[in-house]
Structures are given as structure tokens and as C-alpha cells.
Design a protein around this nucleic acid. Structure first.
Lengths: 248, 248
DNA sequence: CTTTGTATTTGATCTGCGTCAAGGCTGCGG
DNA sequence: CCGCAGCCTTGACGCAGATCAAATACAAAG
């Protein structure tokens, strides 16, 4: 009924769009063959909850296309997004039976899933997978800590600018559309989801976006389509060190 | 001159106090011997900075005793603590040459250090180390995400209660002094450090601690010695789900 | 074309926490 | 014993962002 919404995928890993970034990035041909035997694809519609926090989770996997979010909820309903999952990001924790967070598809989503037990067994035998997963987890930890600074110390305006900068940067990396200085992208999140990510209310998000627009830091077509005429100006509003802090 | 301040350590790993919790937890006798060849101990005094963010870091290591903090600083001086390192926690990132955060010893500290390059080489050859490091990193990621909820959505009072609960819980686990319901511990952080951790000002920290004291949620002797007469009451103030959310 | 629902914007008002300022407590060096 | 330096507490006041409320935009359904 809705299969046209999702890209059709061949079974093979060799032409997988996330082949070189996902948890399987370091695997050789033999290892990929083993993975192919235990993997399967799964589609989710925009808005659909993939798992609820606390529910048993019998698989782990990689986001192939689309965007998902990790969210914590308090008893009284306060919500905080704690992760934004983009293509190639890993979902689930080997060795853990239950989900620790709500996982929600915010766009239509394709996941490459592995049943948990066979995957865990394979991880023991295949150091390439564990190595890559360690690297990815360390990157996520860095991202989480970066976000702690945003949540703890930045103003509402800086928070919005920080989020826009992150999304813009990702799109630049993906489309390689650098040079002009103008960056164009679509917001993959509603105002409410942005508020949940930033620790704000949706009203404050809306107001700050309006302010940034009025002052020419961003341009808007409709509610979601954003143009950033001057990325450095945006970084400035985000309160970030202007240079892109190269480490590694 | 100040060696009495630090516990004297035998060279051997076998009677190391963090033997079963650190990166080396899974290593067998042979692997430990290899580690012993590249390891050395280092002492830091309370208040001393171990590395500055951005500086080259030629070693990684484990906290043996004492407490250290990871902190990010913005150009204008706003600071956010992003990690609290307790005994057995790992410092540094294999594969990364420069520190990503300021690392500061808040108490006298003993670290078990490994020069970075030999350790990285060994990690490739010794899956036990990489496996354990992955597990520890996943735990830290969970902790960071838990903290994102605190920073983004909790009130000042809830933040303080959350921090006290975390420290209390750690001391319970360490001293196994359960049963009575009363928990007693010393705050290892100044008011300012607590503020940096919680995304608050030190004045707000002070006020909220006074308020919790006045209402009998905690008792104070001096500025640092805390008694929690009723842990569930404290959890309640922290806004946490009362049951200790058992996963794994 | 109208209805209905969801997402967003905008306004008015309230409040928790930051900011600024003034002491207090404790330990250490002279 | 005094003075000084760190650390902490307490008070007064203001503001950024929350809360409450209403209007608008837009798309899908009827």
C-alpha cells in the first residue's frame, strides 16, 4: 500500500548507501556475507514509534534512510530528546534486552535490522564490528557532551542557531554543495521536536526562529525550507568557536 | 614532599583496587603482564588541571583513586561540566591526539597511565580491552543522555536532588552500607563545580541546598557532609521514576 | 467549497533563576 | 591573635523564557 514511499533496496550490502559509514564499515567480503544472512530490512512511517522505552527489543540495526529520534519522558510528561539518528547511525545496545529510550521515526524510515542474539554472537567473533561500534559510540558520546553544553549554558537563540548549524553542516557534508556560502535545507523536525531537543517550549522555538528570520540570519520558505546566506554569521549566533575545532 | 597524601601502590595489577571494573577488567594473566610493561602511575593534587582542551595528550588511562571532571568552556567563560570521572573510569580517547575537554582533578588523584601509541597497538591485538572499553563507553553514553534530561527539563531543585542522588547511590554501591535507609557521604564538589555540572549559578545551588536542608530532605554538617534520611524522598524531589529502572 | 485537524505564529502575563551586592564562616600564615 | 583568602550564604531586583490564550496557515477529508 505504501511501498512507493520507501526506496526499494536490493538485498546486497555491496551497493548499500551507508556501506562505508555504518557499523559494518570495516567488514570484509566474508564478514559481509555472514551479516547478510542475519539481516533484514524494515520500513517505518513518519510518526511511527519504533520501540517504547522499557519494552523488549529483539533486534539492533542501522538507519539506512530517514531520521529517527531518541527521547526520554518523565512521569509528568516533560520530554527531552537525547539523540537524533541519521542514516548510518546505530540503534540498540548489544547485550541489553530492553530499550532505554523511546525511538520514533520522524520521517519515513528504512532500517537494516539484525536479530540481537546472532548479532551479539557475531560481534564476539568479528572484531571489525566491535571496533567500528566502539568508534561510533565514542563519536556519539562526544556529540552528547557537546549537546550538554548547549542544554546547560546556551540561551534560547543560541540553542536554535546551534541546531540549525548542526543540520546545515550535515547537509553540506552530504551534498558537498559548498563554495557559494549559501546553504539550503529542509528542517526534518517539527517545532515541537525542536523544542524537545533544545529543552525549550515550542512557543520559544517559534519566536526565536521568527527573530532570526527578521534579522536576516536565515531565510524561510514555508515553515520548513531554510536558507542560510552566511554560515559564519549563523555560527556566531550559536556562540560557537568560529573555527570548526579540528581534533582527531 | 606530599607523597603521604597518595596511597602507595605496588606495581602489580593483581591487587589493584579497580582491577575488576576498569578497561583491564576482562584481561587474563598474560594480557595483564603486557599491560604492566607499558603502564605507569601518576599523581595529581586537588585542583590541578590534568590537560587543557585542545592540548596534545600522549597518554590514556584509568582513574585509580580520587575524582576528576571533564569541562567545556565557551569563549566568554560559560562553563559546562560534561563528565564526572570516578575510580575505574577511563580518561582519553584512543586514536585522538588532543584532549577534547579540560580534565581537572577535584581531589587528590592517582591515575594508571598508558602511553597512547602502545595502548592503541595493544587494543588491536587484545579484543578483551576493546570489548571492555566499548561496554564502558556505552555506559557513559547512557549516563550522558540521562544528564541531558536533567539539564534540559528539570528545575533547579530537581537538578540538585538528582546530583545528590547520583552521589549517594555511588556511595551506597561502594560501601554496601544499605539497610538503615540513612545514607551518609561527603560532597566531592564545591558549590561552583556543582553549578557547572547542573547548568546553574552557584548562588542558585546554595539556595536550593539550603531549602532541601530546611525541609528535612537532607541534613548537613559543615558544608560538605551530607546525610540523606530517606532516599526515596530524595528521589521524589529529583523527579525520578521511583523504581530504579532496571534494564540490561 | 466547507469542515476539521494539525502545525505554527503571535500576544499578554507570570515566574524561576540569573545578576549584583553584601556579609559570614573557616582555616592558614604571619 | 589578627587579617586575609576561599568558599559559602542570603537578600533585592530584573529578565529570559514559561505559561496561558487566541489567531492564522495549510492540507486533507467530506
Amino acid at each position: 500500500m505504501l511501498n512507493e514511499k520507501f526506496p526499494t533496496l536490493n538485498e546486497g550490502c555491496s551497493d548499500c548507501p551507508i556501506r562505508h559509514r555504518a557499523v559494518c564499515a570495516r567488514c570484509d567480503a566474508d564478514e559481509l556475507r555472514l551479516l547478510e544472512e542475519i539481516k533484514y530490512y524494515r520500513n517505518y512511517e513518519a510518526g511511527q514509534t519504533i520501540v517504547w522505552s522499557g519494552d523488549p527489543m529483539d533486534f539492533v540495526g542501522s538507519v539506512v534512510s530517514g531520521i529517527a529520534t531518541l527521547t526520554q519522558t518523565m512521569e509528568d510528561g516533560r520530554r527531552q530528546m537525547v539523540g537524533l539518528l541519521l542514516p548510518s547511525d546505530f540503534v540498540g545496545r548489544p547485550g541489553r534486552k530492553a530499550a532505554a529510550y523511546d525511538v520514533v521515526a520522524t520521517t519515513n524510515l528504512v532500517m537494516c535490522c539484525f536479530r540481537r542474539k546472532p548479532f551479539e554472537d557475531m560481534m564476539v567473533r568479528t572484531p571489525h564490528i566491535a571496533q567500528r561500534l566502539l568508534e561510533m559510540t565514542l563519536d556519539e558520546l562526544d556529540a552528547a557532551r557537546e549537546w550538554m553544553l548547549v542544554l546547560g549554558r546556551k540561551t534560547a537563540r543560541e540553542k536554535i542557531a546551534s541546531l540549525l548549524a548542526i543540520i546545515a553542516r550535515r547537509d553540506v557534508a552530504l551534498n558537498m554543495a559548498r563554495g557559494s556560502g549559501r546553504i539550503v535545507f529542509d528542517l526534518p523536525l517539527t517545532r515541537e521536536a525542536m523544542a524537545d531537543y533544545l529543552g525549550l517550549t515550542l512557543e520559544t522555538v517559534s519566536r526565536q526562529i521568527s527573530a532570526l528570520k527578521k534579522e536576516g540570519v536565515i531565510e524561510l520558505e514555508g515553515k520548513r525550507h531554510v536558507t542560510v546566506p552566511d554560515f559564519d554569521r549563523l555560527l556566531d549566533e550559536a556562540g560557537d568557536d568560529s573555527d570548526g575545532g579540528v581534533l582527531s
